[in-house]
Computed example of a mutant assay.
Amino acid sequence: MVGSPDHKLDDEGLRDPVVRFQSYLHGGTSSLLSALPTFIVFPVYKTVFRQQLHNTPVHTAVAQLYKEGPLKLYRGVVPPLLMRTLNGTLLFGLQDTLLHQLTVSSHYPMPTSAMPALAGFGAGIVEAMVLTPLERVQNVLQNGQNDHRLPTLKSVLMRLKSQRLALGYYRAFLPITARNALGSSLYFGLKDPVCTVVAGQGLSPMISSFISGTLTSMAISLTLYPLSVLVANMQAQVGAEGKGVIACWRMLWTSRQRSVALLYRGGSLVILRSCITWGITTAIYDRQQKNSG
Rank of each mutant, 00 (worst) to 15 (best):
E12M: 11
D16P: 00
V18E: 11
R20E: 12
R20V: 15
Q22K: 12
Y24R: 03
L25C: 06
H26F: 15
G28Q: 10
S30H: 06
S34R: 04
F39V: 15
V41M: 11
T47Q: 03
T56A: 12
H59Q: 15
T60G: 00
K67W: 07
E68S: 14
L71I: 14
L71Y: 13
K72L: 15
L73E: 13
L73V: 10
Y74F: 15
V78L: 14
N87I: 00
G88Y: 06
T89I: 10
F92A: 06
F92K: 04
L102I: 01
T103M: 05
T103H: 07
H107L: 13
P109N: 01
S113F: 00
A114I: 00
M115D: 02
A119P: 03
G120C: 00
F121K: 04
G122T: 02
E127M: 14
L131V: 08
T132G: 03
R136Q: 04
V137F: 04
Q138P: 00
V140A: 02
V140Y: 02
G144H: 10
Q145H: 14
H148V: 15
R149K: 13
L150H: 14
L150F: 07
V156W: 08
V156A: 10
L157C: 08
Q163N: 00
A166M: 05
G168Y: 01
A172P: 03
F173N: 03
F173G: 01
I176R: 04
S184Y: 01
T196F: 10
V197G: 08
Q201K: 12
Q201I: 09
L203E: 09
S204H: 12
P205E: 10
S209K: 08
T216M: 03
S217Q: 13
S221M: 11
P226N: 06
S228W: 04
V229C: 13
L230H: 06
L230A: 13
L230R: 06
Q235S: 10
G239P: 09
G239E: 11
E241N: 06
V245Q: 01
R250A: 13
L252P: 08
T254G: 11
S255Q: 09
R256Y: 10
R265S: 14
V270F: 02
V270P: 00
L272V: 05
R273P: 01
R273Y: 05
S274W: 05
I276V: 15
G279E: 06
I280L: 15
Y285N: 12
D286A: 14
R287P: 00
